[in-house]
């Protein structure tokens, strides 16, 4: 379902020489890339700069604890779906409730078990990918429905414009002052027809930058290849 080498996992633990090191070893042995942080502040900074695919977050951290870190990360719009797995020695109901309320995806109890941590990491990543695929499919379906409706509505008037302008051209000599104007109307109507034809061939959802914060669907990239 995914290649571990394309996944970066951020390991957050203040016990740099033991706990963090063991986790890093287990995770890297499985082929994942890792980055490490020893404090809540460092975790937030590295999450924003390195954009990991998953975070293994120790709850007991100095200064800002893991639960607070998680809340902070979840307040960022683009981090709402980032899998965050808490790692904790404290599995009391209150702690776990606070961890899930803060937006944690899952938790692993300390001391960590290799089988358990790898299975939970894999599950969280698979679920994220499945959600992404589903979202992609939903977006594509709406785009296709909209494209179909727009094309049908536009092709009718375009057919009339291109047809009538072509009829006019049959009566007007190329030297006539109106010829160029009518020819332009005809060419542009046919050009719009090429755009609607492309819209009907959309099979993927690919966007391109439009204005500052807006993305629009890239018709050329989203089309089925001819």
């Amino acid at each position: 379902m995914f290649d571990p080498a394309s996944i970066t996992i951020l390991i957050v633990d203040d016990d740099v020489f033991f706990s963090q090191e063991i986790t890093r070893h287990i995770i890297e042995n499985q082929g994942y890339k890792t980055i490490c942080a020893a404090s809540g502040e460092e975790c937030i900074r590295k999450t924003l700069s390195s954009k990991p695919d998953l975070i293994l977050l120790d709850i007991n951290l100095p200064e800002i604890n893991g639960i607070e870190v998680c809340k902070k990360l979840r307040s960022e719009e683009n981090l709402k779906d980032l899998p965050i797995i808490f790692v904790t020695g404290n599995t009391e109901d209150e702690t776990l409730q606070a961890a899930f309320e803060a937006g944690g995806t899952d938790y692993i109890s300390k001391p960590i078990n290799r089988i358990e941590i790898l299975a939970r990491v894999k599950n969280a990543l698979s679920q994220k990918i499945m959600q992404q695929n589903l979202l992609e499919k939903e977006k594509l379906t709406s785009v296709l429905e909209l494209a179909g409706a727009v094309c049908h509505e536009l092709n009718q008037p375009l057919h009339a414009i291109s047809g009538y302008s072509e009829l006019l051209l049959l009566d007007v000599d190329e030297s006539h002052p109106r010829y160029k104007a009518i020819k332009t109307i005809n060419d542009q109507a046919l050009r719009m027809g090429e755009i609607t034809a492309k819209l009907m061939k959309i099979t993927r959802y690919e966007t391109r930058k439009y204005l500052s914060n807006t993305n629009i669907i890239d018709i050329d990239k989203s089309c089925a290849d001819d």
Binding site: N155, L158, H159, I161, S162, G163, E166, M192, A197
Partner: peptide, 8 residues
């Protein structure tokens, strides 16, 4: 033929 189609 798909609309718009050239009369030609």
């Amino acid at each position: 033929f798909t609309k718009p189609v050239k009369l030609e």
